[in-house]
């Protein structure tokens, strides 16, 4: 069984420390929920794990089945078995899901020719109109379609560990059920370890979590069973320092700019 081990992880954005010693362990087939107030570092943690540029890791380690991920470029972490479903999936004009997954499968030594069949099968399971998939990635898709598309890609790629960053935001109840069900199946049948970042207990009523962690001010301050999520729903995060200043995404995404 695979194993993601995060130890003493510290990371900063633009000189400001956001993660202040995160410790987590997600075993194969386990479902962990990560909750916490706004600004506690949940999204930062997901980006740091996946290797998004713009974050400086100052201490700690992230090992997947013993392989140190820190220092590897994002794609090598993905090839090592880590998947990140983004809170805001990014539009990539002119590039279809078939192109992207085909290249990923080829790099992994999987049979690229099967990508259409696998994507088609997952689209039916997750309830995504296959006609939408001939479009460029996430272009002209609704928020809910984008989230279903993230889970579709997760299911095709079959990673060892999936980090889901607010996969439940912007989903209606039917979509939430479809997404949660597919993730639960992957955990149960494929042994995928799941770290689901969420604000709401609602996801966890569909996706049964083995463990719930509370992240506050860049540290895991409490870990418990599913009852912890229910308690948080009732009491809020007041006990954990309440809402903190939102660090936002780092300003490294260079976009086309007009020329003077």
């Amino acid at each position: 069984m695979s194993d993601l081990v995060v130890e003493g992880l510290h990371a900063s954005v633009a000189g400001r420390e956001i993660l202040r010693g995160v410790d987590l362990r997600v075993g194969g087939g386990e479902v962990h929920a990560l909750m916490g107030p706004n600004g506690s570092g949940k999204s930062t943690l997901s980006h740091v794990l996946a290797g998004r540029p713009g974050y400086e890791v100052t201490a700690g380690s992230v090992r997947l089945d013993g392989v140190e991920l820190l220092g590897l470029p994002a794609w090598e972490r993905a090839q090592a078995g880590l998947f990140l479903a983004l809170q805001y999936p990014i539009e990539v004009p002119g590039v279809s899901v078939y192109d992207a997954l085909g290249e990923s499968m080829e790099a992994a030594g999987r049979e690229r020719g099967r990508v259409r069949e696998l994507v088609g099968a997952e689209a039916r399971r997750i309830g995504l109109d296959e006609a939408l998939l001939t479009r460029a990635l996430n272009v002209d898709l609704s928020g809910g379609e984008r989230k279903r598309n993230e889970i579709l890609q997760l299911a095709v790629l079959q990673p060892k560990v999936a980090v889901l960053d607010e996969i439940d935001s912007g989903l209606d109840i039917d979509a939430l059920t479809a997404v949660a069900r597919r993730v639960a199946q992957l955990a149960a049948e494929s042994g995928t370890g799941v770290l689901a970042i969420t604000h709401y207990q609602r996801l966890l009523s569909e996706l049964a979590a083995d463990k719930v962690h509370v992240l506050s001010a860049g540290r895991v301050v409490q870990t418990g069973g599913p009852e912890l999520a229910l308690e948080l729903e009732r009491t809020g995060y007041a006990a954990y320092g309440g809402e903190q200043e939102e660090p936002g995404e780092p300003a490294v995404a260079r976009r086309p700019r007009p020329l003077v």
């Binding site: 794609w75 990014i90 260079r254």
Partner: peptide, 22 residues
Amino acid sequence: ASAVGPVDESQLFYLESRGVPA
């Protein structure tokens, strides 16, 4: 309309996060 710029870093990251080599 006119635009001049490098490849968008967030698009690169998105594809890399699927395991597509840089």
